[in-house]
Design a binder for these strands. Structure first.
Lengths: 126, 126
DNA sequence: GTCGTTGCAAAGACTTTGCACTCAA
DNA sequence: TTGAGTGCAAAGTCTTTGCAACGAC
């Protein structure tokens, strides 16, 4: 199915051997140091492939567009993976836990953004 | 300082009177129904202004680019607001709490993405 | 030889910005 | 009057995609 190309090996190697959380451009530049013949398009394609294979993880959903929320108070979001519905959610315990994690890591001025994805009751019926 | 323009009132009104979590285009289209003279640029500028004033909330960080993580196991991220450093974090209790919130809302196949922002120990010293 | 992969460049999607004009104060 | 705000279109950024050439199997 998948072919073991030079590019794929290089990219997989780079991402597996960093504790950074690099973006595509960073990976591309690293890859260029190892082989002059590689393109950004290939890096994007290969990274997506590795994500689909479950070998790596991608974060920050780039297909998402900015959304605005009339509720300025801190709260989190439940998002339906099927219909895209978004439900506001506030949970003190969750916030406390987040605070603690911040403290353990000696971080200050903690804020957080939590996205809970799932399938909503309506979409489960379909 | 800020001037009360027709456009600003319309946009603020639209966003305050929806329980949706609209994006800029949606707001723009709604606004066009009320006045033909409005541009997408103004909508973007005004929404950002409302965010800065603390009147509304913006989510999905669109200045963020996709990042890839060599750790494919579920975990969350602590991010320094100053230097951008990202620390992986796994917390069972947090995950349990998230599961519960999913259940309460009758959502299935729960996954989550948590971003904890703060100032890291190194940056606190500067 | 086949067909999955690649490089390249163009296209896409969303958002920001420069500029001259407009209009709130 | 005057400068903050606007419309418009162009530019910007990140990412995806079409296509001919390439190369793993």
């Amino acid at each position: 199915m998948y072919r073991e190309t030079k590019q794929r090996k290089i990219i997989e190697d780079i991402i597996k051997n960093t504790r950074e959380h690099p973006d595509a451009l960073w990976v591309f530049q690293k890859a260029q140091e190892k082989t002059s013949k590689i393109s950004l398009g290939t890096v994007y394609r290969t990274l997506e492939l590795l994500v689909r294979e479950g070998k790596i993880n991608k974060f920050y959903d780039t297909s998402a567009v900015a959304r605005f929320d009339s509720n300025p108070n801190p709260h989190h979001h439940l998002i339906c993976k099927i219909c895209g519905k978004i439900i506001d959610w506030h949970d003190e315990n969750l916030d406390k836990r987040i605070e603690e994690i911040g403290k353990v890591n000696k971080f200050k001025d903690i804020t957080s953004e939590i996205f809970i994805y799932g399938i909503c009751p309506e979409c489960q019926r379909k």
